[in-house]
């Protein structure tokens, strides 16, 4: 359970986020959607304590993110940002191994190695585990980053646009992996998505944001409607019944 209570962050007199009050339920995938500049990524980074808040409070699994020590939070919530560029040269397995740092402090035990192996296999990276990250394609690298946060073994996983720069096939595969992580591993996944149809199909809850406020929160069935989406995205959207559920058409 992630609870935001009147969370506020201001950049200037015109640009501010909140106050946001929101409860993200335990389990499943919650998708954050909304137009550019709505504050989705900012809110995600505040929940992941990478960015401080000006007012209000955020609790993850009952722990206040501003007062709980970062060390303890690293075992409760993990966050993956959109842009990841490392100066060091790492193999996939070494990268995933860093996910164990909150527990191992850099000294990996056999149990850690086992969790690393499972994370790698979970994302089908077994064949690539000794390859260096700079030898991978964008999709493979993205999977390696996700494997790292899964190896961190936190109940809550926050992902900022993990489908960015992925093609159709890899986007679908990534969402399937995340869905499995939610159901089979029991993780609570909060994810920023740009494609509303991915959110409609894979997410269990959709949270729509606009101008720094949460404007809609509900199941895909509740959000995937003409008037709701048109209002959120400020552009005419029609929802039609597709072969695999509702599809938003906005072209």
């Amino acid at each position: 359970m992630i609870t935001l209570n009147a969370v506020h962050k201001s950049y200037s007199s015109e640009v501010s986020i909140g106050p946001v009050t929101l409860q993200i339920p335990t389990g499943g995938i919650t998708a954050l959607v909304g137009p550019n500049g709505a504050g989705k990524s900012t809110m995600l980074t505040m929940v992941g304590r990478l960015l401080g808040i000006d007012a209000g409070s955020i609790e993850v699994a009952g722990y206040d993110v501003s007062s709980t020590s970062s060390k303890d939070l690293a075992k409760i919530v993990s966050i993956l940002r959109q842009e990841n560029h490392f100066v060091t040269r790492l193999t996939v397995r070494q990268l995933v191994g860093f996910g164990r740092f909150p527990y191992s402090k850099g000294r990996l035990t056999t149990a850690d190695e086992e969790i690393i192996s499972r994370s790698i296999d979970f994302l089908d990276l077994g064949e690539l585990e000794h390859r260096y990250l700079d030898q991978l394609s964008g999709g493979q690298r993205q999977r390696a980053y996700v494997a790292m946060v899964l190896a961190q073994d936190t109940e809550h996983v926050l992902l900022d646009e993990p489908l960015n720069n992925l093609d159709m096939k890899h986007s679908v595969l990534m969402m399937q992996h995340l869905k499995r992580a939610a159901t089979e591993l029991g993780r609570t996944i909060v994810i920023v998505l740009h494609d509303i149809n991915f959110a409609g199909h894979y997410a269990d809850y959709i949270c729509a944001m606009k101008h720094g406020q949460v404007v809609e929160f509900g199941s895909p069935a509740e959000i995937m409607r003409d008037e709701v989406l048109t209002g959120v995205f400020d552009t005419p959207v029609r929802v039609v019944e597709g072969p695999a559920g509702p599809l938003a058409v906005y072209y």
């Binding site: 992941g48 990478l50 970062s70 303890d72 939070l73 690293a74 100066v87 850099g106």
Partner: peptide, 19 residues
Amino acid sequence: SKRLNVVALGRDTTMNLGI
């Protein structure tokens, strides 16, 4: 050294891993 290995991954990853 071990913490420096993590810091080399950048600010966000370092904070995510609890440093």
